[in-house]
Design a binder for these strands. Structure first.
Lengths: 339, 339
DNA sequence: AACGATATATAAAGCGCTTCCATAAACGCA
DNA sequence: TGCGTTTATGGAAGCGCTTTATATATCGTT
């Protein structure tokens, strides 16, 4: 059943070398024999072993991907769609390296190396979970997604988190809001940190007072939003608007607000982040930052492809713009604008 | 940098054979040399090439996955979480075979074979898209997800589509509904067909009249639900309830109903299918069938693992039970129960 | 006719590993 | 002590392919 290059050589009455040359269409084979061999290959439905070829060439036409937070990452599948397109375009298959064990001996690099992948994508959350340093220092081309890791052979791609939040805060400011609260994500995550930074910068640039009681530390979940809003409501001057680091957080905020008898957007304006499917179907539909996951996925494998093909150009960092999706969860501040 | 087994052998002062035996912990090596070799392996951070080993052993500890509808399948990522767990458990890595080209010469089998995978998962939609027959007839163990393909080396796993819809229809019947419409998905898809079949059976078993005007052919999208509901509303006896083949379809139905001034659930009961994230956050929250995607993913790789390890037991078909999630989108029928 | 240059084919080595087979050393037992 | 066994080790072939070096045939020049 499983044919190899020798069988073909025999059938065609040529050497293995010649068959190999035909497969890789090396010029030094006459078009006559080339045709004959090609015909046999077709007839016998022969397909060369990618694996064997990879072994000798050292190139496997395979990329590896590590999901350090598992596949349950909420946007994984969106990012993957973009990756898929780029994979098709560049001719790579993708190996999902599932066998991460979290022991100290485990090495991403070695795992990747053993699988003979030409480059790896790392999609994750927290910077300090795994031995990324080894990865960064290794020879193997790597692109990180949503982590600002950079090295001699490592680049990254991410959304423009800082600017996105600033846009959101400015928007609220234009709507006359002055008491703008912020719900963060985990502050030890790259995006969590940056979104917080965006809030800080915006508040500062707009000349608003920076009040720590308007900052709630959450973890991207609905529960953390709910809890945060409950706390905000205890304040003697509760915020009139809250910008969240995630849509799910915003959902929690809205839920708590409704429970307290507040109407969104009339009594409270809310802004999310991510633009998950749910966002546009909510009541009211959630104003939020739309991340271009497709581009993130697409560009990350293109970047990796470039890194593989041009080992000497330093790996870039790519910041993908977001779009601010204005929907129904924000309104002009009902309070007098306080000075 | 990249070490091989020969380097280790040299360092340890033993033969390549011995090193290999240590790696595979073959019994015929003294514990003394074994320890020494192991130590060197650790010191030199040597990791054997999976690829080379796969070449000689014919086993790659790799599974392949084809996504015939691409990664944009709405439940892909949920299913993958389940797969991931089973991959860890069984020790496989997963190769995403992205290079499907849709030309007639393209062969899933050959692609899989060239990549030396031990088995393949096929996750898709339509039965006739690709040359699945070749796959089914091939030697290579295959499990289909959401397709009823079965062969000497092919099994499948899917949700219990028929029964799930029957449960939904019966539930409506208990709520005194008698004019129960159905929104189908694509009828050339496996799940589309089965859900329709469930509706037919339920109607029949409940002794309700089977009315073709209560059947709308959709395609799982919101748009098709919207359109279907518009049509139902033209009827002189519009349905009092509609069961949908997808949650997104149900969203469309509800939207059309609201536009027509109907209140869900008071004037119209609606049931979805899938239990997407959105479902529980809608107003009213959507009553729907919850598919156990984790189990589907998990069991499909376990099944594949079994097929690989026991080549002689005929591949099974696994039907994973669903749970019916009662929420707020259904109410007792407001009309008199018609006889 | 003799020469080097060019085109075409192949043998053989090697990628990093496993495994069969042979060999050598250590052992048990009468 | 001598025999057959067991235990430990290594040589070499081979998995399916690519690639280098080499051989042979063909050709154009003068």
């Amino acid at each position: 059943m499983a044919k190899n290059i020798r069988d073909i050589a025999k059938s065609a009455g040529v050497s293995v070398t010649t068959v190999s040359k035909v497969i890789n269409n090396h010029p030094s084979v006459s078009s006559k024999t080339k045709e004959r061999v090609l015909q046999i290959i077709r007839d016998e439905r022969f397909i060369p072993s990618h694996t064997a070829r990879g072994l000798v060439k050292g190139r496997s036409k395979t990329l590896g991907i590590f999901l350090t937070t598992g596949l349950s990452h909420p946007f994984f599948s969106n990012v993957m769609v973009g990756m898929e397109d780029a994979l098709k375009q560049t001719g790579y298959d993708l190996m999902y390296l599932a066998q991460i064990d979290w022991s100290p001996e485990y090495s991403l690099v070695r795992h990747a190396l053993s699988r003979n992948v030409e480059g790896v994508l790392i999609f994750g959350f927290h910077k300090h979970d795994l031995n990324f340093d080894e990865m960064i220092q290794s020879e193997i081309p790597t692109v990180f997604i949503d982590m600002d890791m950079i090295g001699i052979r490592a680049g990254f791609v991410t959304s423009d988190n800082v600017e996105s939040i600033k846009v959101a805060v400015r928007y609220l400011h234009e709507l006359k809001h002055r008491k703008i609260a912020f719900l963060s994500g985990q502050l030890d995550s790259y995006v969590g940190k940056l979104r917080f930074e965006g809030y800080r910068q915006a508040i500062h640039e707009l000349g608003l007072p920076y009040l720590s009681e308007y900052i709630a530390t959450g973890d991207f979940t609905k529960a953390s939003g709910y809890k945060a809003m409950k706390a905000f409501l205890q304040l003697k001057e509760p915020p009139t608007a809250v910008v969240c680091s995630s849509d799910m957080g915003a959902v929690g905020v809205m839920e708590a607000a409704k429970e307290a008898g507040l109407s969104v957007p009339n009594d409270l304006s809310v802004i999310g982040f991510d633009d998950i499917e749910l966002a546009k179907h909510m009541q009211p539909a959630l104003t939020t930052t739309h991340q271009d996951f497709h581009t993130i996925g697409y560009q990350s494998v293109l970047m990796l492809n470039d890194m593989i093909n041009s080992p000497n150009v330093p790996p870039p960092a790519l910041v993908v713009p977001t779009t601010f999706a204005v929907r129904e969860s924000c309104a002009i501040c009902s309070e007098e604008a306080v000075q």
